[in-house]
Every structure is written in structure tokens, then in C-alpha cells.
């Protein structure tokens, strides 16, 4: 494992910490898209189907369990916690799941590395992760007064995939035959979706003003 991969995973982990911190400290999930959170949970469930059948390392297994556990915990907070669930922006969070899930499922059926249930479901998770942030980005654009933790959360999510791209470049040059077109292209698409957000995030940080996305 290289430093970019480790940094990417740690940033990803930190994004969960920031999100849980925001929700718990403010007892509010205002500005957080439940749809994006549900899609991420679906992504992890589909990607880690081999959790118990394919052991790579203690690190991998632990991280997978943490990601799954945290995702379900966030869903519980947003849907089941009696104080927090009333703060959810239901009327604003209107993105349709099917617009993302259906094309990703079709694409996974068409473009994959192997025609096995595990592989197709895994590929679906890669495609879905690339676009799962869209409901959150749409909600951010509609939210006035984005709080710092929400902005930081989305920034960390984007940074994580950016660091993974550096990790793939590193692996390409250091590992023989390391080619993963599906993952690379999806990861690049995923990172590109954040570029607009990055621009406004960094601008607000440099000018020391509150983050606001133009609608």
C-alpha cells in the first residue's frame, strides 16, 4: 500500500467522522442528502459482498466493516433518530434514485471484467459511487448558509477520490500489469463532479467568507 492510497482512505474515514460529528454536535442533518447517504450505503453493500469470502488484509476487512457500520449508523440518525430526523430537508432533497441506479445497473451489465454475479455487482458499485454525490451537490446548491462541517464533509469526499487517482498513477508505474480501466475512468468522472465545488470551497476559504454555491 502506498502513501496516496493510505491518505485517500484516511481522508475518506475522516469524512465520515466529520459527518457524524456535524449531525451529533448540532443534532441536525440539515443540508445533508439522505439520498446520497442511501446510495453510498448501497455502494458499500454491493462492493463488500465478498467481505467474508475474500480476505485481503486485516486493514481492508476492518475498514470495510467501519465503512458499512458508519453508513448504516448515519442512515439510522437521519431516518430513525427522533430529534434529528425532523431536521432533514425532505422537500429539497428531490433527486430521483432511479436516474442514477438504473443507468449504473445497465452499464454494469454491459461493461464489466467478468460475467459473474460478484463481479457485475462490484462493477455496479464502482459506477454508482462515481455519481452518488449528485443529490448532495444539488442539495448544497439549494441550501442557504451551508455550515462549515457540511462543506468540509463534501470537500473530504472529493479529496479522497483525488488521492485515489494519485494512488492509481503510482501503482501503474510500480506494479506490473496494473490496469483497471473501469475503476480509473469512474474515479476520474467522480473527481470531475467535485471540481466546481472545489472551486467555490477554496475561494470561500481564501477570502474567509462563508461557502455559498451559485444556483
Amino acid at each position: 500500500m502506498n502513501i496516496f492510497r493510505l491518505a485517500g482512505d484516511m481522508v475518506h474515514l475522516l469524512s465520515f467522522v466529520v459527518l457524524v460529528l456535524k449531525i451529533n454536535a448540532t443534532k441536525s442533518c440539515r443540508g445533508i442528502s439522505l439520498k446520497t447517504q442511501e446510495l453510498y450505503t448501497l455502494v458499500f453493500v454491493c462492493r463488500y459482498l465478498d467481505l467474508f469470502s475474500n480476505f485481503i488484509s486485516m486493514y481492508n476487512t476492518t475498514m470495510k466493516i467501519v465503512f458499512l457500520g458508519t453508513s448504516f449508523a448515519i442512515l439510522y440518525l437521519m431516518r430513525g433518530h427522533k430529534v434529528i430526523k425532523v431536521t432533514y430537508d425532505r422537500e429539497q432533497d428531490t433527486f430521483r434514485y432511479l436516474f442514477l441506479v438504473l443507468p449504473c445497473a445497465l452499464l454494469a451489465l454491459l461493461i464489466h471484467n467478468a460475467w459473474t454475479p460478484f463481479e457485475v455487482v462490484w462493477t455496479f458499485s464502482i459506477y454508482l459511487e462515481a455519481v452518488a454525490i449528485l443529490p448532495q451537490l444539488v442539495l448544497l446548491q439549494r441550501t442557504q448558509n451551508i455550515d462549515n462541517l457540511t462543506g468540509n464533509y463534501v470537500f473530504l469526499l472529493g479529496l479522497y477520490r483525488g488521492l485515489y487517482i494519485l494512488n492509481w498513477i503510482y501503482r501503474y508505474f510500480t506494479e506490473p500489469h496494473y490496469i483497471q480501466w473501469i475503476v480509473w475512468i469512474s474515479g476520474i468522472v467522480q473527481t470531475i463532479l467535485y471540481l466546481d465545488f472545489f472551486y467555490y470551497y477554496i475561494k470561500s476559504w481564501k477570502n474567509n467568507v462563508k461557502l455559498a454555491l451559485p444556483s
Binding site: 485481503i56 481492508n60 462490484w122 494512488n167 483497471q180
Partner: peptide, 10 residues
């Protein structure tokens, strides 16, 4: 097995 099918990333 090739590294393509190992899925060693998260």
C-alpha cells in the same frame, strides 16, 4: 489471478 479481479482497494 490478475490484479484486476482482486479488488484490493476500498
Amino acid at each position: 489471478a490478475t490484479s484486476q479481479h482482486e479488488h484490493d482497494e476500498l
